[in-house]
Amino acid sequence: MRAAFASRIDDADPLSALTVGERPEPEPAGDDWVTVEVRASSLNHHDLWSLRGVGLTEKQLPMILGCDAAGVAPDGREVVVYPVVPTPSDPRGVTILSEHHQGTLAERVAVPAANLIAKPAALSFADVACLPTAWLTAYRMLTSRGRVAETDAVLVQGAGGGVATAAVVLAVAMGKRVYATSRDPGKRERIAALGATALEPGARLPERVGVVIETVGAATFDHSLKCAGFGARIVVSGATAGHLPQVNLRRVFAMSLEILGTSMGTPDELSALLEFLASTGVRPVVDSVFGFSEVDAAFAKLASGTVFGKIILDHTR
């Protein structure tokens, strides 16, 4: 079957480590595993990190990339693939597809049957292929971790990337006042069109917020602390601009702040996210759609840093 996979590790030039070609059919890892015919998938920065060797070693190669997918189960059901797989050999007890088990950027992928979640009829394969990593992370950041129901105002740092853009859309749909920062004037315009107040990084907000969505790291963390109201939650799921910020601990204890880490979400949270989109009419922000035959161009776009929203691969093309 055709697949996009890491054939080697190259930290300096990750795109050169990407190979598109034939791979063996997926092998179920247990009796409770099934094989899904993939109709659509989406790219994540995790795929680029894998090509750089983060979370992936030479002995694991070749590894089919991709965490997100939607397709058709053996019984004909249209499904979304939940990408977190129990992995006893990993210290975390779990891994996501493309770390220990082959990923989703292929014609077919093998996963535990329990990882299949029904696709709502109102959502397309392309819509739901955006959700299992970035959108699920954003949903969990706002709901279970951020307890967004307890506040009226949210700050999203570094909007434009997959998680941050998803957080903007979801928080607006939840009826919150949303402030979002970006260094890029063009992205600020697009953020404003999504219903948020778009600001330059470090700008003064008209109010303190109850939840901060933090995926940037050191470059924005002090601003996140200053914008957080009493008892606010700063929810962290990334550190694209530095993972060792200076933290003013006096502000943390004086303002009773919570700094919470998170990644991905649970199957129940993915089901709730699907229900939320189906009932509200909210749809993922899509930067571009590529046919599977254009996977090299899709990865180049992801690596360019110009992406706003998700990059989708249509496996039927």
Rank of each mutant, 00 (worst) to 15 (best):
Ser41Lys: 01
Phe253Ser: 10
Ser124Met: 09
Pro132Ala: 09
Pro245Tyr: 09
Glu150Arg: 14
Gly229His: 08
Glu258Asn: 13
Asp296Trp: 00
Phe125Asn: 08
Leu170Lys: 07
Val307Tyr: 09
Val286Ser: 07
Glu22Val: 02
Gly210Arg: 08
Gly30Arg: 12
Gly231Phe: 09
Asp32Phe: 07
Arg23Phe: 03
Ala73Asn: 04
Val84Ser: 03
Glu269His: 11
Ala298Asn: 02
Thr143Gly: 12
Gly71Arg: 10
Ala218Val: 04
Pro245Phe: 07
Glu200Phe: 01
Ile191Gly: 00
Arg250Gly: 15
Ala138Val: 00
Asp11Pro: 01
Val154Thr: 10
Leu257Cys: 06
Leu142Tyr: 07
Phe308Arg: 04
Ala126Phe: 14
Thr104Asp: 00
Gly76Lys: 08
Met264Gln: 11
Ile213Glu: 05
Ala106Gly: 04
Gly103Leu: 00
Phe125Ile: 13
Ala17Ser: 04
Asp287Met: 14
Leu274Ala: 04
Ala193Leu: 03
Gln60Trp: 05
Leu15Met: 10
Val235Ala: 09
Gly210Asp: 14
Arg52Gly: 00
Lys119Ile: 14
Glu294Tyr: 12
Ala4Gln: 03
Phe276Cys: 08
Val163Phe: 03
Ser16Arg: 12
Pro83Ala: 06
Thr143Ala: 10
Ser288Pro: 10
Thr35Gln: 04
Gly71Trp: 00
Pro62Ile: 01
Gly186Ala: 11
Ile191Phe: 10
Ser293Ile: 03
Ala159Glu: 02
Trp135Gly: 14
Leu116Phe: 06
Ser237Phe: 07
Thr280Pro: 01
Arg208Gly: 13
